[in-house]
């Protein structure tokens, strides 16, 4: 089953790379405009030590920001759901936070919190909490009506209702929120590293662009895509394991 889903996109990607390689060779495109896939692969190999160092820096920050954002989104959704009137008052403001351009916010955060990791983690947190909170809130409100009714009839408190019904039934929504947040967190980390940082793939791209080392830019892009895929895959795997756990009891 896994093969059937993975094979088609891999084939398409291979075909794309093949055409790319052929086109660069055929039209003799300059390397600073568009390097060939093979040239990029070679670049990754040659620079692998440096790239790995930057990749790890990016990974660390992404995970920190993603973790903080997911937690914030989760807790916020719970609070907005449980405190009467909170959702009506705060939800519109939540949407507002996503309308502040990162280009304006990033430098401001650096200005306020210095050149260290903190402002960047804050930036990623601010971007990733939103999809998690929105997905969770939706999930919390969509509990099965008949289950709500049943639990209320037998006298479940609001707290019990939350922990035993609303929270477990919002898990599928939570996973979709986390998947979106994972992709956002990588992109935001790259951007955050391009403002006043001295490490990470974002910083690496900035340097490569200034030196017209286009192959290096592409090398970094390849790694960023890979990182995003791995993050996404890890959450999909967690979701799969969660669903499997529910099924496992069947055979025991």
């Amino acid at each position: 089953m896994g093969n059937k889903r993975i094979l088609p996109p891999v084939l398409v990607l291979a075909l794309f790379l093949l055409i790319w390689q052929a086109a660069v060779a055929l039209f003799q495109v300059d390397a600073y405009l568009l390097p060939s896939p093979i040239a990029i692969a070679k670049q990754i190999y040659d620079e692998h030590e440096q790239l790995l160092r930057h990749l790890l820096a990016t990974l660390g920050m992404t995970l920190l920001g993603f973790g903080a954002g997911a937690l914030l989104g989760f807790v916020l959704a719970g609070l907005l759901h449980l405190i009467p009137g909170a959702k009506a008052g705060f939800y519109p403001l939540l949407v507002l936070t996503q309308n502040v351009p990162l280009m304006a916010l990033g430098p401001l955060l650096v200005l306020w919190f210095g050149f260290g990791t903190l402002p960047r983690v804050i930036l990623i947190t601010l971007v990733t909490f939103f999809p998690v909170a929105v997905a969770m809130l939706t999930g919390l409100m969509q509990s099965d009506e008949k289950l709500v009714n049943y639990l209320r009839m037998i006298g479940a408190s609001k707290r019990k209702l939350f922990w035993r019904l609303e929270l477990p039934s919002s898990v599928p929504h939570l996973f979709s929120g986390l998947k979106i947040a994972a992709s956002y967190s990588v992109i935001t980390a790259i951007y955050a590293e391009s403002i006043g940082s001295s490490k990470g793939l974002g910083y690496y791209i900035l340097l490569a662009q200034r030196g017209f080392e286009t192959a290096n830019v592409f090398a970094a892009i390849a790694l960023i895509v890979l990182l995003s895929l791995v993050m996404f895959g890890a959450i999909a795997l967690a979701e799969h394991l969660y669903n499997r756990g529910k099924v496992k009891g069947e055979t025991s």
Partner: peptide, 9 residues
């Protein structure tokens, strides 16, 4: 008041 009955829906 809730919680005084057993219920089967």
């Amino acid at each position: 008041e809730q919680g005084h009955i057993a219920y089967m829906p």
